[in-house]
Design a protein around this nucleic acid. Structure first.
Lengths: 167, 167
DNA sequence: TTGACATAGTTAGCCAGCTAACTATAATGA
DNA sequence: TCATTATAGTTAGCTGGCTAACTATGTCAA
């Protein structure tokens, strides 16, 4: 994400805008602040999860499994939903299986495939982690009322639509 | 950042809220969407920079040097401003020096220290990259007028203040 | 003034992503 | 039907972060 701690001051932005006339200083400031806050949120989430011996990747796997009626999925589907490579999922599952939170069950219908199942221990882990996470997140966001949350989502939607222009 | 592509639907959030009463569904949705959009922005930035053979870390080093009147800084100061370890800065500088974009100049006043200087080639690189970056960013953010940008910054400020509660 | 501590930078080795290449199995169409 | 192609999962090796340990130099107080 955005590691940069030292965001540009208005003076610095002005100096750069002088040399580079295309600079849109309020666009730059908003963009950088968005990345900054999101990065800090993600780091805070890491800290929260680390108290439960979890990292984001593995935690999301558990959540994706819990979303399923059958508590089951496959590595490829998980990779798609997680937005990581299948190779990465193999590693995540190795760790989770070692901790006893999921099991690999070889599929009968397609012998190439493996079903990944959330174990009772995995569910128990989520039953401890999720209330803690939800409680903290509620507190974190409590200064935004419903109206502000809707506003935020709308603004993010506008930015999201602009992303193709950045690529 | 947030790799997860498959954000929870309202139904899924509802299901989880049933099992975990602490869940605040609009808080969760706003939080995840913020991370999602920021991650996509960061990836788009990577793509933009990669067209100029740059990665975020090295690019920020060049910018931090250009911010200085003297076009010069030190590895420790860069590490602080970048928000990475000094060890990481060593690696970034190795790459930049190899490409001829910065030079290491051993300091006379403190023989432990090294001055990192932006070279003419480094400045020339920025003079190509920055206009492209600024042009794209302006386009990306063009659907937000000044009022919306101020609104966004205020909302982000509120969330930012809540982050300690998440840790 | 010199011994203890602090600071600057680098090196070594770890970790979680990645891509590319591989094995095994399934699906397809000539 | 069987050669080709596609798919599922894993492995190997790369990358850019990290921490911890190291060298060299500077600072400070007894």
């Amino acid at each position: 994400m955005l590691q940069l701690r030292d965001l540009p001051t208005p003076e610095i932005l002005g100096k750069f805008a002088e040399r580079y006339p295309d600079a849109d200083v309020t666009a730059i400031a908003s963009f950088l602040y968005l990345l900054r806050v999101a990065t800090d949120l993600s780091l805070a989430l890491d800290t929260c999860l680390s108290k439960h011996d979890l990292l984001q990747g593995r935690w999301w796997v558990l959540i994706l499994l819990m979303r399923e009626e059958s508590m089951t999925s496959t590595p490829s589907i998980l990779a798609d939903k997680l937005g990581v490579s299948r190779a990465t999922v193999t590693g995540l599952l190795d760790g989770l299986e070692q901790s006893g939170l999921v099991t690999r069950v070889f599929a009968k219908e397609d012998r190439r495939s493996v079903n990944i199942q959330l174990t009772a221990a995995g569910q128990a882990k989520l039953d401890i982690v999720m209330p803690d996470y939800y409680r903290r997140l509620r507190q974190c966001m409590q200064s935004l009322d419903e109206e502000k949350r809707v506003q935020l989502q709308q603004l993010l939607g506008l930015i999201n639509m602009g992303i193709p222009a950045l690529i």
